[in-house]
Design a protein around this nucleic acid. Structure first.
Length: 501
RNA sequence: GGCCCCAUCGUCUAGUCUGGCCCAGGACACCGGGUUUUCAUCCCGGCAACAGGGGUUCGAAUCCCCUUGGGGUCACCA
């Protein structure tokens, strides 16, 4: 029932030479959303013609990253499709046939110029402040001459013969961009070793895979006229283009590792929820209106449009990711988060695998307490550690609270005695009542009582509400840590030793 | 350097195509206040932008030109 000639087909075409970075992920996302919105097909193609730099590990990392984000592709590696193969390295014969066709039609020609001559030429042109262009010396070689040199085994590359006039890119985002053909040199389509070059491979693939819309980074804009010329010479339909502005790192510089994590994998490892990442990515360069900031995947599919993409480059801002991370942590159910955090606790060696099931209710309670204060899953692991092992270190502010009034050590021991009787893991409020009573009896403020207590229990100066923490920590650990308070205070330089250092 | 793209709060952006509703709206960050034993959440409030200069017009963030600034690209890499 679907007319295949009108079905939207888009592609994301990474080269597996490194991880999936933020910019690539955003491009993939826009392609994915456009395809879903249009009821089209999202193709994943691996551009691995650079055998030197391509690795299977990098490709796997890219696939993992896309799966983490839920950007499932309809055709491509591991899922197949009827426009395969989906690896450029497996499509080389096709490219050679295309080059032969170009040669035959006269759209391309053999160039026998040596690299030395080309280097020389480049040097001269640069010295004369001229445009650096191949001078087309081999363009008008006679057929006999060419045949003879081929016969003789002279090495040659194949160049595309660029014609007069101008080439127009009608870009969905940038509008009408005109390039004078004078600016385009007779570019190489096939190397001396017979392998073909990127621009030809892309055109061959986009055409072979019947790609209708090419949504990619603006760094490809100047490649586009060359590709259009190639499509025409090949008699293939030219796809519609949409070039999105690049993402910059802080300081407007090109995105690089210097700007902190730019690899999607790193955020995945830190345990940012995919929905947070999706929102972070999509809003960098796209907006729906002047109100909505948060979008579910379904809403994105429904509301996404190329019209909403801005023409100017965005700088990525980690504060926003953090905010979204926390937002989505609060949106998820405690049960979900526990499912997600459990394996991380096991991996961190805090929780025996078995206990992930047997102590499920307990885990959920601690996750519930951290949920609104963290941005990602690994922060949960970090902040929940004290439930599993007694603190051995006390962060500076915590240590300070303990040193402030060393007498509080006794108060904490006294509180342990109270709790011995009244420990109630279902009633933090009741325990808090006891603490208030003690605070009054000893004329010590709640703050001066609670902060040291928190420090001794958690090793930190901040935590979820103290008595909730105690309820989850359990009687045994609470008693032990409270009773060790005087000792700990002493070891931190408080008490008898005076206020040295 | 040639060619190409871009230009609204610190950041992401709405508004630009279809001039007036904009002495420019939202969000993040930041600052102040409330709640509170801490942190976080939450709630109130605040700071903060049309790069500059010329036009066109009754009227310009919006249209045109120039300048400046930023970015991309110029490979037998992708």
């Amino acid at each position: 029932m679907t007319d295949s000639s009108s079905t939207v087909r888009v592609r994301f075409a990474p080269s597996p030479t490194g991880y999936l970075h933020i910019g690539g992920a955003r491009t993939a996302l826009y392609n994915y959303l456009f395809a879903r919105k249009q009821g089209g097909v999202f193709v994943l193609r691996i551009e691995d013609t650079d055998r030197e730099r391509s690795t299977p590990a990098a490709m796997q990392a890219i696939l993992d990253g896309m799966r983490y984000l839920g950007l499932d592709w309809d055709e491509g590696p591991e899922v197949g499709g009827d426009h395969g193969p989906y690896f450029q390295s497996e499509r080389v014969e096709g490219y050679r046939a295309l080059v032969d066709g170009l040669l035959e039609s006269g759209a391309a020609y053999r160039c026998f110029c040596s690299r030395e001559r080309l280097d020389e030429l480049r040097k001269e042109q640069m010295a004369a402040k001229q445009r650096v262009h191949y001078d087309r010396r081999c363009r008008d070689l006679g057929a006999d001459d060419v045949a003879a040199r081929v016969e003789r085994g002279d090495p040659f590359v194949v160049r595309f013969a660029v014609g007069e006039g101008e080439t127009v890119v009608d870009d969905l985002i940038r509008g009408r961009v005109v390039f004078s053909n004078d600016e385009i040199e007779d570019f190489i389509v096939q190397r001396a070793d017979g392998t073909c070059v990127y621009n030809l491979a892309v055109v061959g693939d986009d055409s072979g895979m019947e790609i209708t819309h090419v949504i990619r980074g603006e760094d490809h804009l100047t490649n586009t006229p060359k590709q259009i010329l190639l499509f025409r010479a090949l008699g293939a339909p030219v796809p519609t283009y949409a070039h999105i502005a690049l993402i910059h790192g802080p300081g407007r510089q090109k995105l690089s590792k210097r700007h902190g994590a730019v690899s999607v994998t790193e955020y995945q490892e830190q345990g940012y929820l995919p929905e947070a990442m999706l929102n972070f990515l999509v809003r960098m360069g796209w907006s729906y209106d002047d109100r909505q900031e948060i979008f579910s995947r379904e809403e994105l599919v429904e509301k996404f449009s190329l019209d909403g993409i801005s023409r100017s480059p965005a700088m990525y801002d980690l504060d926003r990711l953090k905010h979204l991370g926390n937002y989505y942590m609060r949106q998820r159910s405690v049960a979900d988060l526990t499912d997600l955090a459990g394996p991380r606790l096991v991996a961190a060696g805090l929780l025996p695998e078995e206990a992930a099931r047997t102590r499920r209710a307990w885990l959920e309670r601690m996750v519930a307490l951290e949920q609104e204060r963290v941005e990602n899953l690994s922060q949960i692991v970090d902040r929940v550690r004290f439930y599993f092992e007694d603190p051995t270190e006390y962060e500076p502010k915590a240590a300070k609270a303990l040193r402030k009034k060393p007498e509080v050590g006794e108060a904490l021991v006294a509180f342990a005695d109270v709790l011995e009787e009244k420990f109630d893991e279902n009633g933090p409020a009741a325990m808090e009542e006891e603490a208030r009573r003690l605070s009054e009896a000893r004329t010590i403020s709640m703050k001066d009582l609670c902060q040291p207590m928190r420090a001794v229990l958690t090793g930190r100066s901040f935590s979820p509400p103290l008595f909730d923490v105690i309820a989850v920590l359990g009687r045994e650990a609470t008693m032990r840590r409270l009773r060790a308070a005087p000792e700990i205070i002493k070891s931190l330089g408080g008490g008898a030793g005076g206020k040295s250092s």
